[in-house]
Protein backbone atom coordinates (compact mmCIF):
# COMPACT_ATOMS: atom_id res chain seq x y z
CA UNK A 1 0.00 0.00 0.00
CA UNK A 2 1.28 3.42 -0.94
CA UNK A 3 0.50 5.90 1.81
CA UNK A 4 -1.05 9.14 0.74
CA UNK A 5 0.68 12.38 1.58
CA UNK A 6 -2.12 13.17 3.93
CA UNK A 7 -1.82 9.83 5.85
CA UNK A 8 1.87 10.49 6.25
CA UNK A 9 1.27 14.08 7.36
CA UNK A 10 -1.35 12.90 9.87
CA UNK A 11 1.03 10.39 11.42
CA UNK A 12 3.80 12.96 11.66
CA UNK A 13 1.39 15.47 13.22
CA UNK A 14 0.20 12.86 15.73
CA UNK A 15 3.81 12.17 16.69
CA UNK A 16 4.42 15.87 17.22
CA UNK A 17 1.28 16.15 19.35
CA UNK A 18 2.35 13.12 21.36
CA UNK A 19 5.71 14.78 21.97
CA UNK A 20 3.88 17.78 23.43
CA UNK A 21 3.79 20.23 20.53
CA UNK A 22 0.89 22.70 20.63
CA UNK A 23 -2.01 22.01 18.24
CA UNK A 24 -1.64 25.28 16.40
CA UNK A 25 2.12 24.91 16.12
CA UNK A 26 1.61 21.43 14.85
CA UNK A 27 -0.90 22.50 12.21
CA UNK A 28 1.47 25.26 11.13
CA UNK A 29 3.95 22.56 10.12
CA UNK A 30 1.48 21.23 7.55
CA UNK A 31 -0.20 24.31 6.02
CA UNK A 32 -1.45 22.44 2.97
CA UNK A 33 -3.29 19.85 5.19
CA UNK A 34 -4.06 22.02 8.22
CA UNK A 35 -7.78 22.30 7.59
CA UNK A 36 -8.24 18.58 7.23
CA UNK A 37 -5.81 17.74 10.02
CA UNK A 38 -7.44 19.91 12.71
CA UNK A 39 -10.60 17.80 13.35
CA UNK A 40 -8.57 14.60 13.31
CA UNK A 41 -5.98 15.88 15.75
CA UNK A 42 -8.75 17.15 18.03
CA UNK A 43 -10.41 13.73 17.89
CA UNK A 44 -7.09 12.13 18.68
CA UNK A 45 -6.83 14.39 21.73
CA UNK A 46 -10.31 13.33 22.83
CA UNK A 47 -9.43 9.70 22.31
CA UNK A 48 -6.23 10.08 24.30
CA UNK A 49 -8.12 11.87 27.07
CA UNK A 50 -10.99 9.47 26.98
CA UNK A 51 -8.94 6.30 27.02
CA UNK A 52 -5.87 7.38 28.89
CA UNK A 53 -8.00 9.34 31.34
CA UNK A 54 -8.41 6.10 33.20
CA UNK A 55 -4.77 6.66 34.07
CA UNK A 56 -3.08 6.22 36.38
CA UNK A 57 -3.67 2.55 36.12
CA UNK A 58 -4.74 0.93 39.36
CA UNK A 59 -2.61 -1.83 40.71
CA UNK A 60 -4.53 -4.85 39.48
CA UNK A 61 -5.08 -7.96 41.50
CA UNK A 62 -4.24 -10.54 38.89
CA UNK A 63 -3.72 -13.42 41.33
CA UNK A 64 -7.28 -14.80 41.18
CA UNK A 65 -7.14 -14.83 37.40
CA UNK A 66 -3.77 -16.53 37.51
CA UNK A 67 -5.14 -19.16 39.88
CA UNK A 68 -8.07 -19.79 37.52
CA UNK A 69 -5.68 -20.11 34.61
CA UNK A 70 -3.39 -22.55 36.39
CA UNK A 71 -6.33 -24.65 37.56
CA UNK A 72 -7.58 -24.83 33.99
CA UNK A 73 -4.10 -25.71 32.77
CA UNK A 74 -3.77 -28.50 35.28
CA UNK A 75 -7.24 -29.79 34.43
CA UNK A 76 -6.46 -29.64 30.74
CA UNK A 77 -3.38 -31.74 31.20
CA UNK A 78 -5.68 -34.54 32.29
CA UNK A 79 -8.54 -33.99 29.90
CA UNK A 80 -7.19 -32.21 26.84
CA UNK A 81 -8.13 -33.99 23.63
CA UNK A 82 -5.25 -36.14 22.59
CA UNK A 83 -3.58 -35.06 19.37
CA UNK A 84 -2.96 -37.60 16.64
CA UNK A 85 0.64 -38.23 17.65
CA UNK A 86 -0.53 -39.15 21.11
CA UNK A 87 -2.89 -41.77 19.71
CA UNK A 88 -0.04 -43.09 17.62
CA UNK A 89 2.17 -43.29 20.69
CA UNK A 90 -0.55 -45.13 22.58
CA UNK A 91 -0.91 -47.58 19.71
CA UNK A 92 2.85 -48.16 19.68
CA UNK A 93 2.83 -48.77 23.41
CA UNK A 94 -0.09 -51.19 23.05
CA UNK A 95 1.58 -53.07 20.21
CA UNK A 96 4.86 -53.17 22.12
CA UNK A 97 2.99 -54.52 25.10
CA UNK A 98 1.42 -57.25 23.01
CA UNK A 99 4.77 -58.09 21.43
CA UNK A 100 6.49 -58.04 24.80
CA UNK A 101 3.79 -60.26 26.24
CA UNK A 102 4.24 -62.58 23.30
CA UNK A 103 7.99 -62.58 23.79
CA UNK A 104 7.61 -63.35 27.46
CA UNK A 105 4.95 -65.93 26.68
CA UNK A 106 7.32 -67.85 24.39
CA UNK A 107 9.39 -68.63 27.47
CA UNK A 108 6.37 -69.70 29.48
CA UNK A 109 6.08 -73.28 30.71
CA UNK A 110 2.97 -75.33 31.31
CA UNK A 111 1.34 -74.04 34.46
CA UNK A 112 2.54 -70.49 33.89
CA UNK A 113 0.01 -67.72 33.58
CA UNK A 114 1.18 -66.87 30.07
CA UNK A 115 1.36 -70.43 28.81
CA UNK A 116 -2.12 -70.28 27.25
CA UNK A 117 -0.97 -67.13 25.43
CA UNK A 118 2.03 -69.00 24.11
CA UNK A 119 -0.15 -71.82 22.84
CA UNK A 120 -2.63 -69.39 21.33
CA UNK A 121 0.19 -67.69 19.46
CA UNK A 122 1.39 -71.06 18.22
CA UNK A 123 -2.09 -71.94 17.01
CA UNK A 124 -2.24 -68.60 15.22
CA UNK A 125 1.12 -69.34 13.59
CA UNK A 126 -0.14 -72.69 12.38
CA UNK A 127 -3.30 -71.12 11.04
CA UNK A 128 -1.32 -68.50 9.17
CA UNK A 129 1.19 -70.92 7.69
CA UNK A 130 1.13 -70.31 3.94
CA UNK A 131 1.17 -73.94 2.80
CA UNK A 132 1.14 -77.53 4.13
CA UNK A 133 4.95 -77.79 3.98
CA UNK A 134 5.39 -74.68 6.08
CA UNK A 135 2.72 -75.95 8.44
CA UNK A 136 4.50 -79.31 8.77
CA UNK A 137 7.81 -77.58 9.45
CA UNK A 138 6.21 -75.37 12.05
CA UNK A 139 4.46 -78.32 13.64
CA UNK A 140 7.82 -80.08 13.97
CA UNK A 141 9.26 -76.97 15.57
CA UNK A 142 6.43 -76.76 18.03
CA UNK A 143 6.84 -80.45 18.86
CA UNK A 144 10.51 -79.83 19.64
CA UNK A 145 9.38 -76.95 21.83
CA UNK A 146 7.11 -79.34 23.78
CA UNK A 147 10.02 -81.72 24.27
CA UNK A 148 12.17 -78.88 25.52
CA UNK A 149 9.44 -77.90 27.92
CA UNK A 150 9.38 -81.43 29.32
CA UNK A 151 13.11 -81.29 29.89
CA UNK A 152 12.96 -77.87 31.49
CA UNK A 153 10.09 -78.88 33.74
CA UNK A 154 12.03 -81.96 34.78
CA UNK A 155 15.10 -79.90 35.55
CA UNK A 156 13.07 -77.42 37.56
CA UNK A 157 11.05 -80.12 39.28
CA UNK A 158 7.77 -78.55 38.28
CA UNK A 159 4.71 -80.70 37.90
CA UNK A 160 2.87 -80.48 34.62
CA UNK A 161 1.39 -82.56 31.85
CA UNK A 162 2.76 -82.23 28.34
CA UNK A 163 2.07 -84.05 25.10
CA UNK A 164 4.55 -84.50 22.32
CA UNK A 165 5.53 -86.78 19.50
CA UNK A 166 8.74 -88.61 18.84
CA UNK A 167 10.54 -91.73 17.78
CA UNK A 168 11.21 -94.50 20.25
CA UNK A 169 14.98 -94.77 20.60
CA UNK A 170 15.12 -97.27 23.41
CA UNK A 171 12.63 -99.47 25.06
CA UNK A 172 12.69 -101.54 28.20
CA UNK A 173 9.90 -103.22 30.12
CA UNK A 174 9.37 -100.23 32.42
CA UNK A 175 10.57 -97.27 30.38
CA UNK A 176 11.19 -95.98 26.94
CA UNK A 177 13.21 -93.22 25.43
CA UNK A 178 11.47 -90.97 22.94
CA UNK A 179 13.69 -88.49 21.13
CA UNK A 180 16.13 -88.64 24.01
CA UNK A 181 13.53 -88.21 26.73
CA UNK A 182 13.27 -91.06 29.19
CA UNK A 183 9.68 -91.85 30.05
CA UNK A 184 8.80 -94.19 32.88
CA UNK A 185 5.89 -96.52 32.39
CA UNK A 186 4.83 -99.87 31.12
CA UNK A 187 4.33 -99.79 27.41
CA UNK A 188 4.47 -101.87 24.30
CA UNK A 189 6.19 -99.50 21.93
CA UNK A 190 9.17 -100.77 20.12
CA UNK A 191 12.33 -99.08 19.05
CA UNK A 192 11.89 -97.23 15.82
CA UNK A 193 8.18 -96.69 16.21
CA UNK A 194 6.81 -93.22 16.13
CA UNK A 195 4.65 -92.43 19.14
CA UNK A 196 2.60 -89.65 20.54
CA UNK A 197 2.86 -89.47 24.28
CA UNK A 198 1.35 -87.54 27.07
CA UNK A 199 3.59 -87.41 30.09
CA UNK A 200 3.39 -86.08 33.58
CA UNK A 201 6.48 -84.42 34.91
CA UNK A 202 6.69 -84.85 38.64
CA UNK A 203 8.14 -82.59 41.29
CA UNK A 204 11.10 -84.93 41.53
CA UNK A 205 11.80 -84.51 37.86
CA UNK A 206 10.60 -87.94 36.87
CA UNK A 207 8.72 -88.14 33.60
CA UNK A 208 5.83 -90.57 33.81
CA UNK A 209 3.89 -91.88 30.89
CA UNK A 210 0.18 -91.06 31.04
CA UNK A 211 -0.89 -91.97 27.57
CA UNK A 212 0.91 -93.37 24.60
CA UNK A 213 -0.21 -93.83 21.04
CA UNK A 214 1.76 -95.65 18.44
CA UNK A 215 1.56 -93.77 15.20
CA UNK A 216 1.29 -95.63 11.91
CA UNK A 217 4.33 -95.51 9.68
CA UNK A 218 4.37 -92.35 7.65
CA UNK A 219 3.45 -93.06 4.08
CA UNK A 220 5.82 -91.79 1.50
CA UNK A 221 3.45 -91.53 -1.46
CA UNK A 222 0.21 -90.40 0.10
CA UNK A 223 -0.16 -87.97 2.98
CA UNK A 224 -3.27 -89.82 4.18
CA UNK A 225 -2.64 -92.45 6.84
CA UNK A 226 -3.75 -95.86 5.87
CA UNK A 227 -3.52 -97.45 9.29
CA UNK A 228 -5.30 -95.92 12.23
CA UNK A 229 -3.16 -95.18 15.24
CA UNK A 230 -3.51 -97.08 18.46
CA UNK A 231 -3.91 -95.39 21.76
CA UNK A 232 -3.09 -97.16 24.96
CA UNK A 233 -3.40 -96.16 28.53
CA UNK A 234 -0.35 -96.63 30.67
CA UNK A 235 -0.56 -99.57 32.89
CA UNK A 236 1.26 -100.37 36.04
CA UNK A 237 3.19 -103.37 37.16
CA UNK A 238 0.41 -104.08 39.62
CA UNK A 239 -1.82 -105.08 36.79
CA UNK A 240 -1.79 -108.50 35.22
CA UNK A 241 0.72 -108.70 32.48
CA UNK A 242 -1.99 -109.42 29.98
CA UNK A 243 -3.61 -106.08 30.50
CA UNK A 244 -0.34 -104.31 30.11
CA UNK A 245 0.30 -105.84 26.79
CA UNK A 246 -0.27 -103.62 23.85
CA UNK A 247 -3.35 -104.46 21.96
CA UNK A 248 -3.38 -104.99 18.28
CA UNK A 249 -4.30 -102.01 16.21
CA UNK A 250 -7.94 -102.78 16.11
CA UNK A 251 -9.13 -99.28 16.50
CA UNK A 252 -10.87 -99.97 19.81
CA UNK A 253 -9.96 -98.59 23.15
CA UNK A 254 -7.62 -100.37 25.43
CA UNK A 255 -9.12 -101.25 28.78
CA UNK A 256 -7.65 -99.28 31.58
CA UNK A 257 -7.81 -99.44 35.32
CA UNK A 258 -9.98 -96.42 35.87
CA UNK A 259 -13.62 -97.27 35.49
CA UNK A 260 -14.56 -93.83 34.31
CA UNK A 261 -12.22 -93.84 31.39
CA UNK A 262 -13.86 -93.19 28.07
CA UNK A 263 -12.99 -95.38 25.15
CA UNK A 264 -11.61 -93.61 22.19
CA UNK A 265 -14.03 -93.69 19.30
CA UNK A 266 -12.36 -94.82 16.16
CA UNK A 267 -13.22 -91.60 14.45
CA UNK A 268 -11.25 -89.67 17.02
CA UNK A 269 -8.02 -91.45 16.44
CA UNK A 270 -5.98 -89.35 14.13
CA UNK A 271 -2.39 -88.75 13.42
CA UNK A 272 -2.68 -85.23 14.85
CA UNK A 273 -1.67 -86.82 18.04
CA UNK A 274 0.22 -84.15 19.92
CA UNK A 275 -2.70 -81.80 19.58
CA UNK A 276 -5.23 -84.45 20.33
CA UNK A 277 -3.34 -85.54 23.41
CA UNK A 278 -2.55 -82.06 24.43
CA UNK A 279 -3.58 -81.40 28.01
CA UNK A 280 -4.03 -77.74 27.15
CA UNK A 281 -6.38 -78.49 24.29
CA UNK A 282 -9.81 -76.91 24.35
CA UNK A 283 -12.53 -79.10 25.85
CA UNK A 284 -14.46 -78.96 22.61
CA UNK A 285 -11.90 -81.10 20.88
CA UNK A 286 -13.08 -84.60 20.10
CA UNK A 287 -10.52 -86.29 22.30
CA UNK A 288 -11.12 -84.01 25.22
CA UNK A 289 -12.48 -86.74 27.40
CA UNK A 290 -9.21 -88.55 27.16
CA UNK A 291 -7.06 -85.51 27.40
CA UNK A 292 -8.07 -84.31 30.80
CA UNK A 293 -5.08 -85.23 32.88
CA UNK A 294 -7.08 -84.96 36.05
CA UNK A 295 -9.14 -87.97 35.09
CA UNK A 296 -6.10 -90.14 34.83
CA UNK A 297 -4.66 -91.76 37.91
CA UNK A 298 -0.98 -91.74 38.37
CA UNK A 299 0.74 -95.05 38.25
CA UNK A 300 0.63 -96.46 41.71
CA UNK A 301 3.89 -98.27 41.42
CA UNK A 302 6.20 -96.43 39.11
CA UNK A 303 8.96 -98.71 38.10
CA UNK A 304 12.16 -97.29 39.56
CA UNK A 305 11.91 -93.79 38.23
CA UNK A 306 14.95 -92.04 37.03
CA UNK A 307 14.97 -88.24 37.42
CA UNK A 308 15.93 -86.21 34.46
CA UNK A 309 14.94 -85.74 30.90
CA UNK A 310 16.87 -86.83 27.88
CA UNK A 311 19.43 -89.46 28.36
CA UNK A 312 22.97 -88.26 28.24
Amino acid sequence: MNPSDFDLALDQALQLRASGLDLEACLARFPQHAQALRPLLETADLASSGLAAAMPLPTPDLAPGRARLMAAARGGRRSAPAPAWRWAAAAIVAISLVLATGAVATRALPGDLLYPVKRALEDAQLTMAPDPDARATLRAELNTRRQNEVETLGTLGREAVVAFEGRVEDSTRSALVVDGIRIEGIHSAEVGERVSVRVRVTATGVILEELIRIEPPRPTASPEPTVPPVTRRPTTSALPAATRTAQPATGTAVPTREPSATPIPAAERTTETPAAMDPTAAPARPSATLDQPTTLPRPTEPPTPTPGGRRP
Binding site: L51, A52, A54, M55, L57, P58, P60, D61, L62, P64, G65, R66, R68, L69, A72, A73, G76
Partner: peptide, 23 residues
Protein backbone atom coordinates in the same frame (compact mmCIF):
# COMPACT_ATOMS: atom_id res chain seq x y z
CA UNK B 1 -8.94 -1.36 31.77
CA UNK B 2 -8.67 1.56 29.38
CA UNK B 3 -11.42 0.09 27.34
CA UNK B 4 -13.84 -0.63 30.19
CA UNK B 5 -12.70 1.80 32.92
CA UNK B 6 -13.48 -0.52 35.82
CA UNK B 7 -10.75 -2.31 37.70
CA UNK B 8 -12.61 -5.41 38.84
CA UNK B 9 -14.26 -5.81 35.50
CA UNK B 10 -10.91 -5.40 33.77
CA UNK B 11 -9.37 -8.03 36.07
CA UNK B 12 -12.16 -10.47 35.27
CA UNK B 13 -11.93 -9.82 31.56
CA UNK B 14 -8.16 -10.18 31.68
CA UNK B 15 -8.55 -13.57 33.35
CA UNK B 16 -11.01 -14.55 30.63
CA UNK B 17 -8.51 -13.53 27.96
CA UNK B 18 -5.89 -15.91 29.33
CA UNK B 19 -8.36 -18.75 29.72
CA UNK B 20 -9.36 -18.20 26.13
CA UNK B 21 -5.71 -18.19 25.13
CA UNK B 22 -5.13 -21.49 26.92
CA UNK B 23 -8.12 -23.07 25.22
Amino acid sequence: YRRVGEQHLAEDLTADVFLKALE
